[in-house]
Design a protein around this nucleic acid. Structure first.
Lengths: 328, 328
DNA sequence: ATATATTATGTAACCGGTAACACATTTTGT
DNA sequence: ACAAAATGTGTTACCGGTTACATAATATAT
């Protein structure tokens, strides 16, 4: 492989000058620049990012830690992160933590051995102090880790309130809230928002807790609907859960949205594919991912961060699992 | 950060001995080993993979190139690849090629600058010669690039034949085949398999070509169904397309599977979530991804590759979009 | 007992960059 | 015109490992 020395030799200059040219720092005359360009072209020289990393103690690798890329929520974020990273010359390492503390810690350790430039963390199982003690720049995505950690997130409480209120103004009176796993801040906030909406009307909705796993969730929902046939509105803490509810509704022969209305949360692409398409509280996932990446890269490159917490506003996306006519 | 010199100093040995100990090559006495272990523990030493990469001209990074991780087919593969890579101590860089030659080439170039250990390629837009000329180990996943490139793939033709035959024996006589984009080997093979099944019966099915994009596909399907109301069986080249068909069927009020039967291809998790759940020709995606990763790592680590082409057998997964009773 | 093989360890060059420092040359200010 | 500032370039140590080579100490063979 061609190295910087070869280029220096051909250009009849020292490696330092070539390095200066490559990094656009220090002085390089026009003539030298041209000779270097020529040499680079001639030799098809590609600087070794490994050598650069070793020397600078800084790589162009960004770690993206998600619980599980199979969860349809994350590919959309990942894609946005990757796009942004790409355009800034960074590379994304995909890490599935599987919500295992050990695995996540081990990943962080491994990454730090490669001088990883920064971390985007879309998990929240570790103690905030762990993230705060990491020396590389970090951005929390979709999860608030700590006020000191730059964050891109949605106002989950508000979104849930909007979603629940839409169900209520839309004629659903007996609500079921399918909340995500206990202890997950995101799910907690969504429950809070939901309850705010129902409390205001003095309602006592049913709340069930379930994992995000489709089958497990579907079973729990089926049982709940069997016991409480009066339920005419479901607010789900995620689109996957909402789709599970829709699935069960079909199975039980409940017509959606005539007999049962469903509102999800997230705005994943899948929501448009099911029938009827899912009404949901949408987050602009691409925007979130892109914002997180941009934020991280700005941190990495030493730019002053003005805004450390970016709250993306959720937006109700009305599709087919709610009754439109009643909305007025 | 603690480096190998510090360890050597504490253990009262030279860096060479410590390095030998770390790599388990060369001679290191028991006593020295113990002293080194002690020192490593004491200092919490973690070897720098960057320095090692520079020296060895080999990293522990694997590049995974997919068209778009948002396509629900790829997260399942990616997850398997990542799992395997993880267990062998490798790290996965995610690359979305977007089916753009330039982007893919640029990725390959960037990765080679980091001494990437190997590449798993799930795209096929580049000329085979490009992949063959790459000096790092490579494995083709889901796409056959060239006989000389180790490959993990499904027998698409056979799978499509099985899927089409199932429709035919199941009472569907007027078939529509929704084939994927032209020029995509995978889609071509599936069409071939489909046609083999229909030709055998002397049928003349309708074949439409469409992109994998959900909305575009849905529109094309809607038009086709409108013009050809007789269609009672659809074979789709991918589950996403099948789900688009299902979506349109619902929209048009066609009962599935009573009036219209649908068979997809791929076996993505999504297929179980729609209603009715999708009958499909399933590939064991996890197995494919894991096999590709294993194959690659074996290549990287210099093991003899006995089997360079691994054909995973597709399997018909009968669910709700086909009529069961007629199967006999 | 001596030659030879095996085991154990250290020195130092190397991987391919970066950047501090030194030095030379040109430009600018007064 | 002369000092000071700006510009241009080279030498070399360093980042943190690996490994070829040299050397020393044991173990084994004859």
């Amino acid at each position: 492989m061609v190295n910087i020395k070869d280029v220096a030799k051909v250009a009849n200059l020292s490696v330092a000058t070539v390095s200066r040219y490559l990094n656009q720092n220090g002085y390089v005359s026009k003539k030298s620049s041209e000779r270097i360009e020529q040499a680079i072209l001639e030799l098809d020289y590609k600087p070794s990012s490994v050598a650069r990393s070793l020397s600078k103690k800084q790589s162009n690798i960004i770690g993206l830690i998600v619980p599980d890329i199979k969860n349809p929520y994350f590919p959309e974020l990942a894609r946005a992160v990757e796009d942004m990273a790409w355009s800034y010359g960074y590379t994304v390492v995909l890490c599935n933590s599987d919500d295992q503390v050990e695995k996540e810690l081990s990943y962080i350790e491994r990454l730090s051995q490669t001088y990883v430039a920064g971390l985007i963390v879309a998990t929240s199982l570790l103690d905030p102090s762990v993230y705060m003690s990491i020396s590389t720049p970090i951005v929390a995505l979709d999860r608030i880790i700590d006020v000191t950690v730059p964050t891109v997130a949605t106002d989950n409480e508000k979104g849930a309130r909007i979603g629940a209120e839409y169900l209520l103004t839309n004629g659903a009176g007996n609500l079921l809230c399918i909340r995500g796993p206990q202890g997950l801040k995101t799910a907690d906030d969504r429950l809070t928002g939901f309850l705010k909406a129902t409390d205001k009307r003095g309602l006592e909705p049913i709340v069930i807790t379930t994992s995000f796993d489709f089958k497990v969730a579907a079973e729990a929902i089926e049982q709940t609907l069997a016991v409480n046939p009066k339920i005419d509105g479901i607010f789900a803490s995620s689109d996957t859960l909402a789709i599970a509810a829709l699935h069960i509704a079909h199975k039980l022969g409940k017509r959606v949205p005539e007999e049962l209305q469903i509102v999800g949360f997230d705005g994943i692409a899948l929501g448009e594919m099911v029938s009827p398409p899912l009404t949901t509280v949408g987050q602009d996932l691409y925007k979130m991912g892109a914002a997180a990446a941009t934020m991280l890269i700005e941190q990495i490159e030493g730019k002053e961060i003005i805004q450390t917490v970016l709250n993306i506003n959720p937006q109700l996306i009305v599709r087919g699992t709610t009754r439109k006519e009643a909305a007025k």
